[in-house]
C-alpha cells in the first residue's frame, strides 16, 4: 500500500514534468489543421511540414548557428577564466578573498535590468551591438560566478599536498597550475562547462537587447519573436522549440549526475 502511494507520487511528478513539453513536441509534428482542431489530435500525423517551414520561411538554421557560436565561445572563455580564478580562490591564500568571492557571487544575483542600459550604451559606443562579441562578453561576465564557484569548490576538494609535492619537485607556481592542477581538473571543468553552456544557450534578456538584427539573433530571440502574418505560427514555434530543447534534454539524460553536483555544489557544505 505504502509502495503504491510512493510509486504513484513518482509517476505523477514525472508526468507533470514531461507531459507539457511532450505536448509541444506533439504539436510540432501536426498539420496546421490538426493543431487547431477540437478535440485535439492526440496522435499527430507525423508530418515534418512545420520543421520544413521553420527552416525555409523562418530561417531556423541561422538561429541555431548563432546559438552554437555564442554559447560555445562563451563556454570556452568562461571556463578558461574560471579555472584560474577558481584555483586562486580554492587553493591559494590571499587578503580579501571573502570580499572577492562575495562580490563575484553578488554579480550572479544582479537583476539584469540594473545593468542593461549601461551595458547597451557601452556596446553601442564600441560599435558592438549586433555582433557576436557584443553578446559573448556580457555572457562571460554573467556566467563567471557560476564557473568560478563550481571550480573553486572542486579545487578545494583535491588533496592538500599537491602544491607542496610539486614544490619539492622544483615546480614554479605556474608550472604547478598548468602541469599538475589543470590536468586533474577535467571533471570540474566538464561540470562547469555544461552549466555555463546551458545558461548561455537559454539566455534571452540580453540577447533581445543586443541583437536587434535577425542576422545575429540566437534561438530564444527567434522563438520569442516568431510572428505569422495573420495567425500565430504554432507549428513552427513548436518545431523551433523542439530543435532548441533536444540538445538540452540529451545533456540532462546523459550528464544528470554532473549537472546535479554542479547545481548543488557548495549549497549544502556551505
Amino acid at each position: 500500500m505504502k509502495k503504491t502511494i510512493f510509486f504513484a507520487g513518482v509517476f505523477i511528478i514525472v508526468s507533470l514534468s514531461l507531459l507539457p513539453f511532450l505536448w509541444f513536441v506533439n504539436t510540432s509534428l501536426k498539420t496546421s489543421i490538426e493543431i487547431t482542431s477540437i478535440p485535439p489530435a492526440l496522435i499527430p500525423s507525423g508530418t515534418l511540414a512545420s520543421y520544413r517551414s521553420a527552416i525555409e520561411e523562418y530561417d531556423l538554421m541561422h538561429f541555431v548557428r548563432n546559438s552554437i557560436i555564442i554559447a560555445g565561445i562563451t563556454t570556452l572563455f568562461t571556463i578558461l577564466i574560471s579555472v584560474i580564478t577558481g584555483y586562486a580562490i580554492g587553493r591559494l591564500r590571499f587578503k580579501y578573498k571573502g570580499l572577492f568571492m562575495g562580490s563575484l557571487l553578488a554579480v550572479s544575483m544582479f537583476p539584469q535590468i540594473s545593468i542593461a542600459g549601461p551595458v547597451w550604451r557601452i556596446l553601442q559606443q564600441l560599435g558592438w551591438l549586433n555582433s557576436y562579441q557584443g553578446l559573448i562578453i556580457p555572457y562571460i561576465t554573467l556566467t563567471l560566478p557560476l564557473g568560478v564557484w563550481i571550480l573553486a569548490s572542486f579545487f578545494k576538494d583535491l588533496p592538500p599536498e599537491l602544491e607542496a609535492a610539486a614544490r619539492v619537485d622544483g615546480c614554479s607556481h605556474f608550472q604547478t597550475l598548468f602541469r599538475i592542477i589543470i590536468p586533474l581538473s577535467t571533471p570540474g571543468v566538464f561540470t562547469a562547462a555544461i552549466l555555463v553552456f546551458i545558461y548561455a544557450w537559454n539566455e534571452f534578456f540580453f540577447a533581445l537587447l543586443i541583437m536587434t538584427q535577425r542576422d545575429f539573433q540566437p534561438l530564444p530571440v527567434g522563438i520569442a519573436l516568431f510572428q505569422g502574418q495573420y495567425t500565430m505560427p504554432w507549428g513552427e514555434i513548436a518545431a523551433a522549440s523542439t530543435v532548441s530543447t533536444i540538445p538540452l534534454v540529451l545533456m540532462v539524460f546523459i550528464f544528470q549526475k554532473r549537472i546535479i553536483s554542479g547545481l548543488t555544489s557548495g549549497a549544502v557544505k556551505g
Binding site: 514525472v14 514534468s17 513539453f21 509541444f24 537559454n202 522549440s241 530543447t245 534534454v249 540532462v252 544528470q256
Partner: peptide
C-alpha cells in the same frame, strides 16, 4: 531524476511559448 530535471533545462522562452499554447483561448 533526469525527467524531473527536464523543465529546468528547457529555455524559458520555450517553456513560455509552450504554456502560452496550452492556455490558448481557441484550441
Amino acid at each position: 531524476r533526469a525527467a524531473i530535471l527536464v523543465p529546468w533545462a528547457i529555455p524559458t522562452v520555450v517553456s513560455s511559448q509552450m504554456w502560452r499554447f496550452i492556455f490558448n483561448d481557441k484550441y
